[in-house]
Nucleic acid binder design. Structure first.
Length: 302
RNA sequence: GCCGAGAUAGCCAAGGUGGUCACGGCGGAGGUCUGAAAAACCCCAGAUGUCAGUUCGACUCUGACUCUCGGCA
């Protein structure tokens, strides 16, 4: 059995997942695309205060450090602090790492509990059977200098039918165009018949969402304020001092650009709170747009 | 009180010889997504301070009023 705890931001997913872990003798696997980064703690809301703060590394490679934090009640939380914010991380990486951890947890007779708001990662783990292959950052870098018109033309030349079938949103989305070109260049073609079947036999997916929009707004605002109190500004100052900037993949995370602007004097404190809160609310909205198409999710409201 | 500048959407804001006026950005609603997803992208709604005058026609010109911001007293 695998449990999945997902849903909107600021709904208390981690707390609920820990309850599940208690009941089912489980261990948590983080499915949050930001909390995999080292050093992004307060702003991303890593629940390290629930742990003993000691990271136990289990499998370390050049790219990734797979390990866990142990909670005060001796439960493990995996896939925090996997890599530096300097490096890109992808759904491909997540699926690979999560599968490794799932095997490890099961081999010890425990239950994997996947928890996080990055539904895209979760969907790729649960349903993604694509043979499309991993990201090729060389090709992406090369294509990133092209204009949107150039990208459209390149893709159109490679596969006219595919390009014709794209909607406006995708045609004008450089990242999506680059990804498609990348697949064709590395695989020869895009396999359109790849399945969307459940990869595991027994899975229970639970989702948490806010009952009303104003609940969400209040919760998020309160959480932003509490993160600032906990030292979000200092966290960012340290990162900046260590040479991290908005260009780094990990820093392209809600909260960081806004705080950096504030530290640079571009926006005042009130402006920072507002900008950060607004981005979080917009994110929560996008999460729902994506998640509500999954009929397997059992929803509850908070 | 006087002088000057201004008043365009929830906020910021561009404009033009008077001709269906109305560029953008933010915010708001909705959406897209098969390994960048806290990303990237699509799309929709919404405005000329008030009152008069000139005119076939005023957001644009004139006057008064109201309000705002500077400066002087």
């Amino acid at each position: 059995m695998i449990y999945v705890m997902t849903g909107q931001t600021a709904t208390g997913k981690t707390a609920r997942a820990l309850e599940l872990a208690q009941i089912y003798n489980g261990e948590l696997i983080n499915a949050d695309s930001r909390q995999v980064y080292t050093g992004l703690d307060i702003v991303t809301g890593k629940d390290l205060d629930l742990t003993t703060h000691t990271f136990t590394s289990v499998q370390k490679s050049e790219q990734f450090d797979i390990g866990y934090y142990e909670t005060t009640s001796s439960m493990r939380i995996w896939l925090y602090d996997v890599l530096s914010p300097k490096n890109p991380f992808s759904a491909f990486d997540f699926v690979r790492l999560a599968k490794t951890v799932i095997s490890d947890i099961r081999s010890r007779g425990k239950t994997p509990i996947i928890v996080g708001g990055t539904y895209f990662y979760i969907s790729q783990l649960l349903y993604g059977a694509s043979s499309a292959g991993e990201p090729n950052w060389e090709i992406r870098k090369e294509l990133s200098t092209k204009s949107i018109e150039e990208l459209q033309e390149i893709l159109s030349l490679l596969d006219t039918n595919l390009f014709q079938s794209l909607n406006q949103s995708e045609r004008r989305n450089p990242q999506r165009l680059i990804r498609k070109i990348e697949i064709i260049k590395t695989q020869g073609a895009i396999c359109s018949t790849s399945s969307r079947e459940m990869q595991f036999t027994e899975v229970e997916i639970r989702g948490l969402c806010h009952r009303e929009k104003h609940n969400l707004e209040e919760k998020i605002r309160a959480r932003v304020l509490s993160r600032l109190e906990k030292g979000a500004l200092e966290e960012v100052q340290n990162l900046v001092r260590k040479g991290y900037s908005m260009q780094d993949p990990g820093i392209k995370t809600i909260g960081y650009p806004q705080i950096i602007s504030h530290l640079a004097g571009d926006i005042n404190y009130e402006g920072l709170i507002k900008a950060w809160t607004t981005k979080e609310i917009q994110y929560a909205k996008r999460q729902m747009t994506l998640m509500k198409s999954d009929s397997h999710i059992q929803w509850s409201t908070v």
